[in-house]
Amino acid sequence: MTATTLPPGQKQQPTAALPRRISDRSRAERRLGWMLAGPAFVVMLLVTAYPILQAIYDSLFDFRLTDPKNRAFTGLSNYAVILTDRIWWVSLGVTLLITIVTVVVELVLGFALALVMMKALSAIRPALRAAILIPYAVITVVSAFAWKYAFGLDSGFVNSWFSWLPGVGPNTDWFGGQWSALFVVCLAEIWKTTPFISLLLLAGLAQVPEVLQEAARVDGATWWQRMTKVTIPNMKAAIMVALLFRSLDAFRVFDSIFVMTSGANNTESVSFLAYRQTIARLEIGLGSAVSVLLFLSVVLISALFIKGFKVDLSSTRGEA
């Protein structure tokens, strides 16, 4: 058992007497590795790869659950129906708008929160950390209800609190129009998910070497110069990872829209459109096609980030 006592770095050292032993061990290690990680791997594949393949297959049929006998292969015609329909483009526009607005606002706000937490006196830091985790831990549906009721006509306080603003009165119906409704949806999303971004950014901030800051300070750099020339470039990886995760998460927006507007007044997101086709209208074929298009959009966004912005995902989440 001499090979096992060596530290990992020296394991591969070629020693004339031991080559067979080492390859035996590495073969055993390989087998053990797959035995341990295999079940998790298979489960992950089963719960995602199988459904998406099924969705791709279903999307090629004209198939209603209310009329299962008349299932017919129609090729790509479901996609043609969707891509020529205004509803699809409206929902895609709404989804993109929510994604861009929330991610940009969250990045700025999250950065500010991270800076405050970084600089805050150590006495209040645990309190801040606990406070900022609360929105993260609150169920999205609960947060959506809280914001809906705050702005709602029947039980809200926003109209009476902000009646001094032009355009806001006791009868302002926030959910009656597309823009005002989307504004409230974005507000709820931003409140709920900014903490996640700010925690990722805080971890990035902590890794900016203090010596660089000191050097810049000695050279007479202003606060703004230090921020844009030293801090932000040095935490680019953290910013990009936060951006990627939040963009993909925002693109799937569903819960808030379901609770707040149910897609009324052109506030439907792509996820909600897929839900409405499949579950409410039982149009399995059309709904699957929307699901596949949503999936492709997510793949496209990830590819854009990874190739376009060179986000190195191998440096994230557990990869040694």
Binding site: P51, D58, L248, I284, V298
Partner: peptide, 17 residues
Amino acid sequence: LAVAIFPVISIVTPLFN
């Protein structure tokens, strides 16, 4: 990573059936 960014709606429609 890929599973984590997977849109839930795309999984749920085939599962429903």
